[in-house]
Design a protein around this nucleic acid. Structure first.
Lengths: 347, 347
DNA sequence: CAAAATCACTATATCGTTACAGTTTTCCCA
DNA sequence: TGGGAAAACTGTAACGATATAGTGATTTTG
């Protein structure tokens, strides 16, 4: 009944196997473009039967909305921007993070755009870029600082984002974080259980939030389990492995050298092992080491190193879910998650 | 002189600190939108002085073309799509690859979109997606097969792309590859120099092109240096480290066990080391191992392992340059590069 | 039974950009 | 001096989608 091809025949779309648009569907169903658009959006003012018909045809010809069209008209980009620091590459965190995010985005319309920045000082640039050009609907950042200007900026603009790592600005925003406090605390416990007393921490660079957490867990462990903290500030997790090794060799040769080490990363631990063995020390005998570990490397090549795992891929998944939820308007306080050290051996 | 604000005053753009568009510049200069557009494109029919003026204003207000507008009108997305397999994450190749690509794209207008696919069988899906939706101007793929359907498809459609790894289809396309033939050949040389005679290769999965190269180099080395190849087909570089270790333990306990191993990846080598030590063998004494190595892990924890480096970040840079050149119309035969094993110790 | 409300659908304008087809103005040359 | 061409600029339409403001039937309601 309703299928009158009424006033002024609609133009047939040009090429036969061009990419279908709303116009194509409109032509095929005899409806107006607007109707098709609204039908696909399940708008309340379109008849049930019509919606059915439109959906059928759309599925049949494999219609997919033109992203540029939508973006131009509505401003919605369907893009999540992952902003990363080149330092992360050194730690090898990028791969599993990207994979984790992708796993979640694959079930949505979102694409993942990766934007790295060079030096520490430029961390704000990519965020500004996204804000100014509207390049994405949401942003994921990592390596947060206690007072993070990127977080301040995006909060001020009310722009959806999620952070890998927490902040300390009294602002409530979505985050996912690994419990580095717990990690360091448990690490100290293990060392003391081995009879170690003079402990050092190979820690994050001091301007990052998780420095505070890891440091706090370490200090708390020192107090609770009755050990002594030996300072080790010449290098940190961002230093090159060569520098870490050199600094550790010096430390271990100094008077009052430590007999237990906590390493905040697996690759850092490798440098530490190289250093202590160069100094003729034996793991498990003269000294003990607890480390984060991502693969099975340490576990197999130096089983004496005690390890705990941090699941970065999970972090990627959580962060992706959080930004999307934020874009959809969920409250930030519901989008904060923590993950915990995984005892080596478990999945 | 030319600055007449002539017939029918042009509408002033709305909000004061909205994002500037061509319209904004047109209003500020008193020119038409078309003129501004063409001026910024350095078109020949615009006066030199006018171009200057437009460029100045554009720079002043920080004009950046709206990507959605350009994309809708011209079809140019200014996007490069990196398509990766989840297997790559296991090898940890993603990070440096992404960084390398980004380094190059940062100097251009291109954005990097990362699209992973799940299982081996779905490798074509993301390529089809890009082709069908026009989601990118160019594509980078890796893990090529000798007859690679993705390459065939993109060649047929004349779509710009570059591959990490070569193919063997008689089609000329841009690629970057590591010389795995040379790597394996040199590895065999080193082992024979240590007096090793019965050699195995921990090789790539057989359906990938670089299996052929690595295998060929290995066999050639065996012939040239007079050694024997011991088969080892139960596992390959895509196998889990646990499986590799188990298979290697069995191999080493069998009669006629090898006394030299070539490993196509650093993490594979870790599993091999774990296996041979579990069997009570000593590196450099009962057996020798040559491996690719990306970090300093093996070098420091098992200096007895001989290593060569593959620069994945460089690969990323080369691939990015190649796709872009291809998009700009350069001939594919000019866009094929190889990189060579880097002796450990050099940068 | 006329006025109001509801239902199902549609035309138009617009987002920012560029291809194309003009329009003026100036200048040159026969 | 007039015709033609070159130089410099501009209006319109279109890319594909959607927000807004309709239109014309049909149904409800007082």
């Amino acid at each position: 009944m309703k299928n009158r091809l009424s006033e002024g025949a609609r133009a047939a779309p040009a090429g036969t196997n061009e990419r279908p648009t709303l116009k194509t569907i409109a032509f095929m169903t005899g409806l107006g473009i607007t109707t098709v658009s609204r039908a696909l959006k399940d708008a309340p003012d379109i008849g049930t039967e019509t919606k059915e018909r439109v959906r059928l045809v759309a599925a049949q010809i494999g219609y997919q909305p033109n992203r540029a069209g939508v973006r131009l008209r509505t401003g919605k980009t369907n893009v999540i921007s992952l902003i990363l620091s080149l330092e992360e590459e050194i730690m090898g965190l990028t791969s599993p993070m990207v994979i984790g995010i992708s796993e979640v985005l694959a079930t949505t319309q979102y694409h993942l755009v990766v934007t790295p920045y060079r030096a520490q000082g430029n961390a704000l640039d990519p965020v500004r870029y996204v804000l100014e050009t509207g390049a994405a609907d949401g942003v994921i950042i990592s390596r947060t600082e206690p007072k993070d200007p990127r977080v301040a900026l995006m909060m001020e603009r009310n722009f959806p984002f999620a952070t890998h790592g927490r902040t300390e600005m009294g602002l409530t925003h979505p985050y996912h974080d690994f419990d580095n406090e717990r990690f360091a605390y448990e690490a100290v416990r293990k060392l003391v259980e081995q009879g170690r007393k003079r402990l050092v921490l190979l820690q994050p660079p001091p301007y990052l939030t998780f420095y505070l957490h890891m440091r706090a867990g370490f200090e708390r462990g020192i107090r609770d389990f009755g050990a002594t903290a030996v300072p080790f500030n010449e290098v940190n997790l961002d230093s090159s492995l060569v520098d870490i090794r050199r600094a550790a060799e010096n430390l271990l040769r100094a008077p009052n050298a430590p007999d237990g080490i906590v390493s905040g990363s697996g690759s850092g631990a490798v440098a530490l092992v190289a250093a202590l063995e160069a100094d003729g020390l034996k793991l498990g005998e003269h000294i003990d080491l607890v480390s984060k570990e991502s693969q099975m490397l340490l576990q197999w090549l130096r089983p004496e190193v005690m390890t705990m795992r941090e699941d970065i891929r999970l972090a990627g998944r959580e962060l992706a879910k959080a930004v999307i939820a934020r874009i959809e308007g969920r409250a930030p306080e519901e989008l904060q998650t923590l993950s915990y050290p995984i005892p080596t051996g478990e999945t």
